[in-house]
Design a protein around this nucleic acid. Structure first.
Length: 260
DNA sequence: AAGCGGTCCAACCGCATCGCC
DNA sequence: AGGCGATGCGGTTGGACCGCT
């Protein structure tokens, strides 16, 4: 209760203050150094031990966040590429605001980064379109066209995909190598960190693999609920990202972080 | 030059989930 | 089974910066 009062009076303007023994606000270089040292020695996890073992006046949550979003050596710096943007759009249309799930398909990018990128670039664009019934009809028409096109492409590419990916082999790999990085069939340097130990994640694997092989909707069960909402969002996006919706072939190059 | 809006980014919070006891 | 601490996730906030008017 006291902390809440303190917080409300402090707001976010007074960075670097100490609250109940914990520092808040921007991290200093020295704090970063201490945290990096800690992870070197003890590995990731047990974040609440950081303060005790390093003298850092940061709580476990803050340490974890700083490491995950900023200090991790495998983070990819720089702007989101058009290819990554396409993946984000595709995955957001499929998963919604499940940023961590989306981030797993973008090595070196954090959920925070993707979330920020989405909010800045796409969130507002989706708001304005629904009012216009003309646009709604146009979207419906385009949607139907798209579905027909997808159906056609699906049939064509299914055969190709089946030849490229031995699904059974992949799933067998997952069964016996849970939480390990799978080797992409026919793509030795092109891996991503995937943890397919849940149904969602297995769907994600299927989806991402199909993307890598040039088809965005093969082998992935469509989520039945909220589908219309997703489509609406997707078609709203189409207003400003016109070519995206017709893009079903993806650049296969996914850079592998050094640490992998 | 100043004001303003948009973008980027880091960091916070609350809540959910997980794992251990 | 339930309590509790640790961790993960998504939403939100605020400051810095930049370009435009």
């Amino acid at each position: 209760m006291l902390s809440e009062i303190i917080m409300s009076s402090e707001k976010m303007g007074n960075w670097g203050i100490i609250e109940e023994g914990w520092r808040k606000g921007p991290w200093t270089a020295e704090e970063d150094r201490l945290l990096i040292e800690y992870v070197k020695l003890h590995g990731e996890g047990r974040w609440n031990s950081v303060a005790r073992l390093t003298g850092l006046k940061r709580n476990g949550k803050s340490c974890r966040l700083r490491w995950v979003n900023y200090l991790r050596p495998d983070l990819k710096r720089g702007q989101i590429t058009p290819h990554e943007e396409r993946i984000i759009l595709e995955l957001h249309a499929r998963w919604g605001n499940r940023w961590s799930t989306i981030a797993r398909s973008l090595p070196g990018r954090t959920d925070n980064e993707i979330k920020n990128y989405w909010r800045t670039h796409f969130k507002k664009k989706t708001k304005n379109s629904c009012a216009n019934s003309e646009k709604s009809r146009a979207r419906l028409w385009k949607r139907q066209q798209f579905q027909q096109q997808q159906q056609h492409q699906l049939q064509q590419q299914q055969q190709q995909i089946n030849n490229q990916i031995d699904i059974k082999r992949v799933m067998s790999f997952f069964d016996h190598n849970e939480n390990k990085v799978p080797t992409m069939p026919q793509a030795k340097q092109e891996t991503t960190v995937l943890y397919p130990n849940t149904v969602d994640q297995q769907n994600q694997v299927g989806f991402f693999y199909s993307m890598l092989n040039g088809c965005s909707s093969v082998s992935v069960p469509e989520p039945s609920s909220d589908e219309d909402i997703m489509w609406d969002g997707l078609w709203n996006l189409d207003d400003f990202y016109g070519q995206f919706i017709n893009t079903t072939t993806y650049n296969k190059t996914i850079t592998t972080p050094n640490c992998l």
